[in-house]
């Protein structure tokens, strides 16, 4: 496996996302730029210019027409993917920590940071997927999170039925996406260990959370039950689920950025870890980054994955045949039995 290095960012990567067909990669970093890349060979398609602060988050709609970004300049912006035109800017009082499109691309969610005197908000906009159309100024739903601790991540469940958010204290909450009512709040991670990432399965019926408590947990989106737990030996920044037929999860993390200079790369544990989704067993690691992995994203078609690191590189890995051939003994048996 020869990773492709995407070197266009000058500072730490914060999020990377694949388009639905897996041909484009969108990356944002603390250097204020949004980049789009062809995943096939790592060539840069372009940059989206406008933000004036570190960027925290990016998401692309399922048609790869619209791109949403949010950052520390207290704005959430909507871009046309093809032309790079800035379509809409929403201003807030605090920075945007997470944006996400719903499954159908008709809704856009944003999470604002809780800071002195400001509470975390989860805002939802109705988006017209036509780039020419006028986008709304006011959100259709605004959840003001005042009783729960700071929201770090959030996303839409299947059919945009729920909004699920991860919090600074390690808890995960489920909200009604229509009314904004809090349905449940579960403490699945260790107390006061921030939930750092929340990624969905392909059908959005279950999701994976990563936390600083060195664990990633697979939750059911409806019951909020913890289905699986993956234990790592380092604080996690990101966790992704690979699409069928390979049922793995990829965890990324590493020593906190502030401690990195005091440790060697070997000890920093800057590796992507692969676990079997069902058996919760670690099956391999991919090294390469020389800083912690801030985000891991998987190509929705399952051909490759990429990771964005604190070291300013995005590494795109196209999987080799062993990855596709690998099966546990029981899986092999099951496959041979179903054939008979």
């Amino acid at each position: 496996m020869r990773p492709i290095l995407l070197s266009g960012h000058e500072r730490a990567l914060t999020q990377v996302k694949f388009s639905k067909e897996g041909d484009l990669i969108f990356s944002v970093s603390k250097d204020h730029t949004v980049c789009a890349w062809y995943s096939a060979n790592g060539e840069r398609f372009g940059t989206y210019k406008g933000h004036v602060g570190a960027l925290w988050t990016v998401d692309v709609d399922p048609h790869t027409r619209l791109l949403a970004t949010g950052g520390a300049d207290n704005t959430m912006r909507l871009w046309e993917v093809q032309t790079g035109k800035l379509l809409k800017t929403w201003d807030y009082l605090t920075s945007i920590k997470r944006v996400e499109f719903s499954e159908d691309g008709k809704q856009l969610l944003g999470v604002t940071e809780k800071r002195t005197g400001q509470l975390s908000h989860i805002v939802v906009y109705d988006i017209d997927s036509n780039p020419e159309a006028e986008q709304p100024d006011e959100p259709t739903l605004r959840i003001i999170v005042d009783e729960l601790p700071r929201v770090t991540v959030a996303g839409f469940s299947f059919l945009s039925q729920y909004i699920v958010s991860g919090h600074e204290d390690g808890s995960v909450s489920q909200w009604d996406a229509k009314t904004g009512e809090l349905i449940t709040n579960v403490f699945s991670h260790d107390a006061d260990m921030q939930v750092t990432d929340l990624q969905w399965s392909a059908d959005r019926t279950y999701f994976l959370t990563a936390s600083k408590d060195k664990q990633a947990k697979l939750h059911d989106a409806r019951s909020m039950e913890v289905l699986k737990t993956y234990v790592a030996d380092t604080p996690l920044n990101s966790a992704a689920i690979t699409p069928d037929p390979q049922s793995y999860v990829i965890l990324g993390g590493g020593q906190a950025a502030m401690d990195v200079t005091t440790t060697s790369a070997r000890q920093g544990k800057f590796e992507a870890r692969f676990y079997h989704k069902v058996f919760e067993e670690e099956i391999g690691r991919v090294r390469g980054h020389f800083g912690p992995l801030n985000y891991v994203a998987v190509d929705p078609t399952g051909k490759c994955y990429c990771s964005g690191g604190e070291d300013g590189y995005v590494r795109v890995h196209h999987f080799d045949p062993p990855y596709f051939d690998f099966k546990f003994e029981v899986e092999r048996e099951a496959a041979s039995q179903s054939r008979m």
Binding site: R2, I283, G284
Partner: peptide
């Protein structure tokens, strides 16, 4: 294309 060094990745049971 800029390719990095070759990295061995072979999933295995009991890693």
């Amino acid at each position: 294309t800029t390719l990095g060094e070759n990295i061995m990745f072979k999933p295995m049971v009991g890693f």
